[in-house]
Write a protein that binds this DNA or RNA. Structure first.
Length: 403
DNA sequence: AACGGGTACAACCGCGCATCA
DNA sequence: CTGATGCGCGGTTGTACCCGT
């Protein structure tokens, strides 16, 4: 593997893209679609590698991209999703139409991380830093005890201190999932006004993981349950894919607060891929909202400020009036998950459709990366079904389910 | 005006996975 | 089955810009 053969070729430009290059790429893809990325630069007359072209297109030239600053809603959603998904930026981006994974990643690293730290929250674990210190002390104590048994083990543990349950596995697994099995805590004891009414204590929550490093044991036939106040080890990890969505289950059991969803953006009813109807016997939970009454769902998103508000900007003003965070509403906000396939389907239903650049006439491009094409409202059922099925398979793998 | 530090963002790099011959 | 290739993802680096001194 390693570097692509195209990257070894000489005379390939690197660095910033010039407007001329942008124009060439935009023109070419607009007229022909990208097709095989490796052939794009040649056909478009660019001295770039295909990979670079793809990146430029996805992160910058795509006409459906939202430009400009992230709204507070978007930031909140990113934080929320990061707590669940970790550094899976593409999946997070899937929930933010018009935003790219790169953009979100940059925002996270440059801005949100800092804000969270300022609030005493560890951005990796979403735990309070003070609690992490306690954990670290405890771990040191544990390691001291263990050191009498095996010094080598301690080295491994230290190396994986960020991922206590991931002490085995490949370098990549440890590296890429170094925060994936951390507890997820929705409490801010240093700022009690931010605590949701009725919520007491922490909410240990094993972050969703994928691959062999998954931090929770998953029973594909049962639902992921969440027991407030329990420890991670007490968490009842169950999935119920056949009954309703994973996240619906999470919402029902994890966040035992009344779900209030205020529909603000209606999805087009003519898009089969986003109906909450069953596909292949499994309900489409993309774009669904969740309720506490056993999984009733709506086909409307709700990211209305009123219904979803725990902005950092508010919380950040420690001791100020802006701290009246609507935690119950935060908790009631649907967690949305999706793989790459649904990304595109979802982006066709932009939350911020009024801000998305107007449609362009892409011709001959039915590949996933340009499925944002707004004309895809007319996508046929089979395509949506295929995408969805693929997505479910990916999710099944992601949750450690092997079917 | 020049310089340096900080920040935000664009782009590259390295890797894993999927596909295909 | 295996190697080559393409794609996508997450981490990292580079750079333009802003602001204070």
């Amino acid at each position: 593997m390693g570097r692509h053969s195209c990257c070894y070729k000489q005379k390939l430009r690197k660095g910033l893209w010039s407007p001329e290059e942008d124009g060439k790429l935009l023109n070419y893809i607009t007229k022909n679609g990208h097709g095989c990325w490796s052939s794009v630069p040649k056909l478009a007359g660019l001295q770039r590698c295909g990979k670079s072209c793809r990146l430029r297109w996805i992160n910058y030239l795509r006409p459906d991209l939202k430009r400009g600053a992230f709204s507070q809603q978007e930031e909140n959603l990113i934080i929320e999703l990061h707590a669940v998904l970790g550094n899976r930026w593409s999946q997070i981006a899937a929930q933010l139409p018009g935003r790219t994974d790169n953009e979100i990643k940059n925002l996270w690293n440059s801005c949100i991380k800092k804000k969270l730290r300022q609030r005493g929250i560890d951005p990796n674990t979403h735990k309070l830093l003070s609690e992490l210190e306690i954990d670290n002390e405890k771990q040191v104590t544990d390691n001291d005890k263990a050191s009498t048994v095996s010094g080598e083990f301690n080295l491994i543990e230290a190396a994986n201190s960020k991922s206590p349950s991931a002490s085995s596995g490949s370098r990549i697994a440890n590296n890429k999932n170094n925060s994936s099995t951390q507890d997820f805590i929705l409490e801010n004891s240093s700022n009690t006004s931010c605590r949701p009414p009725g919520l007491v204590g922490s909410f240990p929550f094993q972050k969703l993981n994928h691959g062999t490093n998954i931090g929770i044991s998953v029973n594909p036939n049962t639902a992921l349950c969440f027991n407030p106040g329990s420890s991670s080890s007490e968490m009842i990890s169950q999935f119920n894919l056949s009954n309703s969505s994973i996240l619906s289950s999470m919402s029902n059991s994890i966040f035992q607060t009344p779900i209030r969803v205020k529909p603000s953006v209606s999805l087009p009813s003519d898009n089969p891929s986003l109906r909450s109807s069953d596909i292949n016997g499994v309900q489409n939970w993309e774009g669904s909202s969740f309720s506490n009454d056993g999984g009733s769902r709506s086909t409307s998103y709700s990211f209305d400020n009123n219904a979803f508000s725990w902005g950092l900007s508010d919380c950040g003003k420690s001791g100020e009036e802006g701290e009246d965070i609507k935690w119950s509403e935060y908790l009631s906000t649907p967690f949305l998950l999706g793989g790459t396939g649904t990304v595109q389907n979802q982006t066709s239903q932009p939350m911020y459709s009024n801000e998305i650049k107007p449609d362009t006439n892409l011709i001959g491009d039915v590949s996933g990366s340009t499925a944002w094409h707004q004309n895809q409202h007319q996508q046929d059922n089979s395509q949506a079904s295929n995408v969805y099925t693929k997505d479910l398979q990916r999710l099944a793998v992601a949750f450690g389910q092997t079917t």
